[in-house]
Amino acid sequence: MEKASGGRAGYAIAGVVNAALLWAINIWPGWQAVPFLTPATAGVVGPVNRVLVAGVIVNVVLLLAPFRLVKALGDLAVLVIGLPVMFRLWEVFPFDFGDGWPGWPVVVRVLLVLGIAGQIIGIIVGLVELGRALAGSGANRRRPRRL
């Protein structure tokens, strides 16, 4: 199997960051401590947690098996799990910027659209990478000699 590009340190850092976000959102200080999040945030915490847990799992697996096919599958899985979360954030829009600058909701909506577009592009790229990894997985196998 072909090794994935990127180092184990990167997988470890990404896994730790995802775990730290899980801790911060759910335990300390908790999402309730963020002043611009509304109580509606409770409706998106579960899906956000699923994406973060998927990221931790994928990065731990990549630490143990840093192969191109594993990376392609893991990246694709996280993107596919994350896309509905972005749509849910759009739908719930658990943000309230109070009397601050009135443009904040528009800025956040634009960022959500960019995030959704990025996820869709990432899924397409992920499918191509998965295809390449599958096509390359047989490249290292011995082929029988022709007579």
Rank of each mutant, 00 (worst) to 15 (best):
I25H: 06
V17A: 10
L22P: 04
N140W: 13
L69W: 10
S137H: 14
V128T: 01
D96S: 14
P47I: 00
G98V: 07
W31E: 02
W101R: 12
G136F: 15
L63Y: 08
V128W: 10
A40F: 14
G126E: 00
L22N: 02
L62W: 00
W101V: 11
D99V: 11
G10M: 00
L89E: 04
G30H: 06
L63F: 09
T41R: 05
W31D: 03
V78P: 13
L52Y: 01
R145Y: 02
G74L: 05
A19E: 00
G6P: 00
A9N: 08
I124N: 10
G82V: 04
P94D: 07
I120W: 00
V45Q: 06
V125L: 12
S137Y: 13
I25V: 13
F36Q: 04
V34G: 15
G103N: 08
V45L: 07
M1P: 09
P94F: 07
V58D: 00
L52M: 05
V61F: 04
L79R: 14
R132F: 00
G126F: 00
A12H: 04
L21G: 05
W31K: 09
I116T: 13
W90M: 11
V34F: 14
V16K: 05
W31R: 08
V92K: 14
A14F: 08
A14K: 06
A19T: 03
F67Q: 12
L73D: 01
V70R: 10
F93G: 05
I13S: 07
I116W: 08
G15V: 01
I27C: 09
L111H: 11
R88H: 10
A14V: 04
G136H: 15
A24M: 08
I81F: 12
R109G: 07
R88C: 00
V128K: 10
V58I: 09
K3N: 11
R88L: 10
L89A: 07
G55N: 05
A65I: 09
L69I: 09
A139L: 08
L64Y: 06
I121A: 15
M1K: 13
V45D: 02
W31C: 07
W104G: 08
V58Y: 03
A40S: 14
W28L: 07
V92S: 15
G82P: 12
V44D: 05
L73I: 11
V106H: 11
A40T: 06
A24E: 01
G10F: 00
G115I: 03
R143Q: 13
R143C: 06
G46A: 15
W31M: 07
L37C: 09
L73R: 14
V60K: 00
A33K: 02
G131V: 03
L112D: 03
A133C: 07
R141C: 13
V44S: 08
E129A: 06
L37Y: 14
A33Y: 01
Q119Y: 15
D99M: 10
L79P: 00
T41W: 15
L63D: 07
V80T: 09
